[in-house]
């Protein structure tokens, strides 16, 4: 078919096609390059000692177990706060709200929250939770900050899923005499579980990868804590991301930093897979 068009046009088409393939190739190359380089630099330093001990000045060893645990605690605590609030907000928007204008304002506020950079969350979290609520630099303050930060994600995914619950389910439930709350609890929310799960997974990814918002809220301690200690005010703890930053920027221990980066990368990969699986389920339900 290209025989019929002029040489100039053919050249232009060829050029544009080439540029497009180049751009797509570049994106893939970037990913492969970053992953390959991280694996190459980091994997040799992931040892059992590194992931199973805490850092010891006496023995001069480095361990990141406290950071791994802190990341897990932070994820749990953040989810515990953000899930009820986010699901509640989405339920209000989809099931209760009648005032169009209020819904629009809430939507606008949610978008605004989603657009605020994490460094500002960190700063306001420090002002509000660390100082104003007097929680001290602590994992708890970090979790509360991240809960506000991840709220838009949970609201959005839950709302998407609530919209796919057929109206007839609601009518059936109400027709049988259920109250509105009873209907929501037993019919609507269980049907929207996939959206809630997707919101959870995306939040986990966000929390695990967050650093700027934690710098001034969750602190930099590397002590071992159990879950109960971790959620008490005043107990600071650094996550994997903060530990990576400290090892790379402040101490110049790049081997440890790369090892942590590989762990974070694996986490990202898992979160991605899980999110894809959940989204696939959601799509199937819709289709």
């Amino acid at each position: 078919m290209n025989e019929t068009i002029s040489a100039a046009r053919r050249a232009k088409v060829f050029l544009l096609n080439a540029l497009m393939y180049l751009a797509a190739g570049l994106v893939c190359l970037l990913l492969v390059g970053i992953i390959g380089y991280l694996l190459f630099r980091g994997v040799p330093y992931i040892t059992w000692e590194l992931v199973s001990t805490k850092p010891s000045l006496l023995r001069g060893t480095v361990g990141i177990l406290p950071n791994i645990l802190n990341t897990a605690y932070l994820i749990l605590a953040t989810l515990a706060v953000v899930l009820p609030l986010g699901v509640g907000a989405a339920t209000y928007l989809n099931e209760y709200a009648k005032n169009e204008r209020l819904v629009r304002v809430i939507g606008l506020a949610t978008e605004t929250l989603a657009g605020i950079p994490s460094i500002i969350y960190g700063l306001v979290g420090m002002l509000a939770f660390v100082q104003f609520c007097n929680l001290g630099t602590s994992l708890l303050a970090g979790a509360l900050t991240l809960a506000v930060m991840t709220l838009p994600t949970v609201i959005r995914t839950t709302e998407e899923s609530l919209k796919t619950v057929p109206q007839s389910y609601r009518e059936g439930s109400l027709g049988l005499g259920a109250g509105k709350w009873h209907m929501i609890r037993t019919v609507v929310l269980p049907c929207a579980i996939d959206g809630i799960v997707t919101g959870c997974i995306l939040s986990i990814g966000r929390v695990a990868g967050e650093s700027a918002a934690l710098l001034f809220t969750a602190g930099m301690a590397n002590e071992m804590m159990n879950l109960l200690e971790a959620v008490q005010p005043g107990n600071a703890g650094s996550t994997l991301t903060i530990a990576l930053y400290m090892y790379a920027k402040e101490r110049g221990q790049f081997d440890v930093a790369f090892a942590i980066a590989v762990i974070l990368l694996a986490l990202t990969f898992l979160v991605n897979l899980a999110a894809k699986a959940a989204a696939g389920k959601l799509k199937k339900k819709r289709g």
């Binding site: 990913l31 970053i34 992953i35 380089y37 990868g209 930093a257 974070l264 990202t268 991605n272 894809k276």
Partner: peptide, 21 residues
């Protein structure tokens, strides 16, 4: 390519910082 884009979006910013450094 879409998978690559999603993964790039998920990489934490400190990891980008480390590779940049």
């Amino acid at each position: 390519v879409r998978g690559a884009v999603d993964l790039l979006a998920g990489i934490p910013s400190v990891v980008y910082g480390l590779v940049g450094m």
